[in-house]
């Protein structure tokens, strides 16, 4: 008789294989659901691939989605390293965008000076947005999931308030948006800006920071076993706060790049769910910085599919539902990977 048996450890390749198979299974189930709803699924899948990879235009679109997803994914992944869930990427993204917009509209200087300054402002904005949840988590053990998430709603309201009120550009009749920020990121291709290069560079910096520095080691140890870390003399509380601030800051930089590089104005809705999708990127990547790149690319393709498929009557919402399915299957696959079929020995 063959039976299921649970094992306590599995090799890294099995974990990777489980991820890939989970995503594939989710896409299959999602595709089947679309087929039941009456869509021509192979045709849709074909147009997604063509729309994303077949032209420079499509690749640029993909790149513009890729870059913020890398950073919001990195933000969530960094928090996962110390065992925390930063679900507030969306709010921190907006806070970074607000800070960068305020800086860009009020400070004047040469572009090479201003761009780093704007990035710094974005980082500071995102970090400030997560400060209260970070302190509450470190000193009062208050669940960071809920506090970071609730601040997303506050950030959305704040952006809408600023864009319809104090920051509103009277020249913009149709949409409520701020005035144009007078600084631009240098282009990589026509529309694609160097934000992508910056995002990839930040991934490398984080990878080195976590794998090669004492600080990174202390964070990983605190994430693996808080009590052991404390016993070893690591200031766990301080590391928790630092990591959450770093996480919020990265999401803030994503907001800065979006508002300075892509949209050029602060307006509602610019986050495009990047904050939430970043959580998925981080989960798919298992919290490993370099793995954020392929995971963010996958999410960018899925998100881009939403745009491509609108021509066929599929809305963003179906695509959002599909991403939820991917997350669910990933979570289940993670557990299934620990089961083996085995033949128990006869006594």
């Amino acid at each position: 008789m063959i039976r299921l048996q649970r094992v306590s450890t599995v090799g890294p390749w099995i974990v990777v294989a489980a991820r890939v198979l989970s995503v594939a299974a989710a896409l299959l189930v999602g595709g089947a659901a679309f087929a039941v709803a009456g869509y021509d699924v192979p045709m849709l899948a074909g147009s997604v691939v063509r729309g994303s990879f077949d032209s420079l235009f499509g690749l640029e679109d993909l790149g513009l989605l890729f870059s913020p997803l890398i950073l919001t994914g990195l933000a969530a992944a960094v928090a996962l390293r110390i065992g925390l869930w930063n679900i507030g990427g969306e709010g921190q993204f907006y806070a970074g965008a607000i800070a960068a917009t305020l800086t860009g509209l009020n400070l004047h200087g040469p572009t090479p000076v201003m761009l780093p300054l704007l990035a710094l402002a974005g980082f500071a904005g995102g970090a400030a947005w997560v400060l209260v949840p970070a302190l509450a988590r470190a000193f009062l053990a208050i669940d960071e999931i809920i506090t970071t998430l609730l601040l997303n709603f506050v950030a959305v309201l704040l952006v809408n308030y600023l864009c319809t009120g104090p920051l509103r550009d009277p020249a913009q009749a149709v949409t409520s948006a701020s005035a144009r920020i007078p600084y631009e990121l240098p282009p990589l291709l026509d529309d694609l800006h160097w934000g992508l290069g910056g995002s990839v560079a930040l991934v490398s910096v984080m990878a080195v920071l976590f794998a090669r520095t004492r600080w990174g080691y202390e964070v990983r140890l605190s994430g693996a076993n808080r009590h052991a870390a404390r016993y070893a003399g690591i200031p766990v509380r301080r590391r928790l706060i630092q990591v959450l601030l770093l996480s919020g800051g990265l999401a803030g930089v994503a907001g800065m790049l979006e508002v300075v590089g892509t949209v050029h104005r602060l307006q509602g809705g610019i986050s495009n769910n990047y904050g939430y999708l970043g959580i998925m990127v981080a989960v798919l990547a298992g919290g490993v910085p370099f793995a954020v790149l392929p995971a963010a690319l996958l999410m960018a393709v899925i998100l881009n599919a939403g745009t491509v498929l609108q021509a066929y009557g599929v809305s963003n919402y179906e695509v959002l539902a599909l991403t939820g399915l991917v997350l669910l299957f990933t979570a289940m696959g993670e557990r299934i990977a620990y089961y083996r079929l085995s033949r128990p020995m006869r006594a």
Partner: peptide, 19 residues
């Protein structure tokens, strides 16, 4: 299956809202 509760809950929120 005993999958991670945080992840599955987030998945339910995202998939449910989209659906």
């Amino acid at each position: 299956l005993r999958a991670n509760q945080t992840l599955c809950g987030l998945a339910l929120t995202i998939a449910g809202s989209g659906l």
